[in-house]
Each structure stands twice: as structure tokens, then as C-alpha cells.
């Protein structure tokens, strides 16, 4: 029996929402693929056609959230925005979208370099690859010579920030916001110092004017 594309998408949706609910309520560790299949109303074997492992299901949820975040980040970019601000927004808007998935971001980060089935077009991608692509564009868009490995360096930093965020116990994870601010400024400063030929827009961190 052939399954139509529409049916396939519907099943995928059910698996996703079952996974999201169970991971959040019961926790990633305590949830089995069997639980997910059951909650989605499909056979355990069918689930494997879509997601070979529990990790890949979690990663799929995370990647989707990040894709939505990327769209919002792009819509919010402003002309002439300093690099540090662009990078900050990229990481922070990502966190905003990842908030419902915070409890199971950790296991996904642990497998960040592993390829994950991308359901949209059947291709394969990984968390690390997906995180780095837009930054690659931003950095090379900065003109001139991009320091070698700069995008990879940033994506490593980014994964570290995600990991800190997942473990952050401060109210609304506000400590992570401060950390992201410091980290992105530091990276932007390093990056700009590396490419002399690049003229970056003026830094946003000018001293504030006196109120009156």
C-alpha cells in the first residue's frame, strides 16, 4: 500500500507533537520510542521509518524550532547593525524559539555533529551544520578576508552557549542572556581585529549620552 505525501506529513506531525509533549512532561530520558509511537497512534516499527532514534526525533524538533527562529531573525535584522548585535540576535532569538524544548536540548547538542534526517526534502543535515550556515553568510558578507575557521569557531561558541542555557537555573535564564552578550561581543571584537581590510560598522557600545 502506498502512502500519500499528505498522509506522511500528517503522521510526521503526530509523531512530533507526541514527542514534544512526552519529552517535556516526562523528560527525555524517561521517554521511550515505544511511548512516542503509542501516543502518536502508530506502530513502533512505523516510527523508525521517520526517526531512527529518539535523539533524532528530539533533534528534528530542535532543528524545526531553529529554522523558525532563523526566519524571525532575518526579518529583524537592521541595516548597518553592528556585527555583535547581529550575532547576539541570532543566538538569542534561537533561544526564544528553543524555550519549549529546553529540557531536551542537551542530548541533541551531544550529537550535534551527527547527520539528522531532514524530512522536508529527504536530505541530511546536522545541528552544527544548520547553526553555522547563516553565520557563514553573515561573516563572509562582512567583506574582505574572513579569518579561516571563523564560522566553525562561532558555531562551537554557539553550542557552548546552548549548553550553558540548558543548565541555567537563573530566573528566565537571564544569566545566559548576559553570557551571550559577552560572548558575541568578544567574538565580534576578535573577528574584526582579524580582518583588517574589513571595515565594520561603528560599534553600538558607545558611552551613553547624559539624559539631559
Amino acid at each position: 500500500m502506498r502512502i500519500t505525501a499528505a498522509e506522511k506529513t500528517a503522521t510526521l506531525q503526530r509523531i512530533r507533537s507526541a514527542g514534544r509533549k512526552l519529552f517535556s512532561s516526562r523528560g527525555f530520558e524517561a521517554t521511550t520510542t515505544r511511548d512516542v509511537a503509542k501516543a502518536a497512534g502508530i506502530a513502533a516499527g512505523t516510527l523508525f521509518n521517520y526517526f531512527p532514534t529518539k535523539e533524532s526525533l528530539a533533534a528534528g524538533l530542535v532543528l524545526d524550532a531553529l529554522a523558525a527562529a532563523k526566519a524571525e531573525w532575518e526579518s529583524k535584522r537592521r541595516e548597518g547593525e553592528p556585527l555583535a548585535e547581529t550575532l547576539f540576535a541570532y543566538v538569542a532569538i534561537g533561544l526564544r524559539y528553543l524555550r519549549p524544548h529546553r529540557k531536551y536540548v542537551r542530548p541533541v547538542i551531544d550529537t550535534a555533529a551527527m547527520p539528522i534526517a531532514d524530512d522536508a526534502n529527504g536530505g541530511r543535515t546536522s545541528l552544527a551544520a544548520q547553526l553555522v550556515a547563516p553565520i557563514d553568510d553573515v561573516l563572509s558578507g562582512a567583506a574582505g578576508d574572513v579569518p579561516p575557521l571563523a564560522p566553525q569557531l562561532f558555531s562551537t561558541l554557539h553550542l557552548g552557549l546552548l549548553s550553558a542555557w540548558a543548565a541555567d537555573t537563573s530566573p528566565r535564564q537571564e544569566q545566559t542572556l548576559a553570557l551571550v552578550d559577552h560572548a558575541t561581543r568578544m567574538f565580534a571584537d576578535w573577528f574584526c581585529s582579524q580582518c583588517e581590510r574589513i571595515t565594520m560598522p561603528a560599534d553600538a557600545s558607545q558611552p551613553l549620552q547624559n539624559g539631559s
Partner: peptide, 22 residues
């Protein structure tokens, strides 16, 4: 008295995120 007015700035992206979460 000028020093008093020189706190470290938040750029708009940080401010927006912080206000959003608050």
C-alpha cells in the same frame, strides 16, 4: 559625575530579548 552616566550599554537586540522574556 560623568562616570556615573557611563553604564555598559545594551544594544537593541539584547534589550528586545530581555524585555520579551520579562
Amino acid at each position: 559625575s560623568r562616570l556615573y552616566y557611563q553604564a555598559p550599554p545594551m544594544h537593541y537586540a539584547l534589550l528586545r530579548e530581555h524585555v520579551h522574556s520579562e
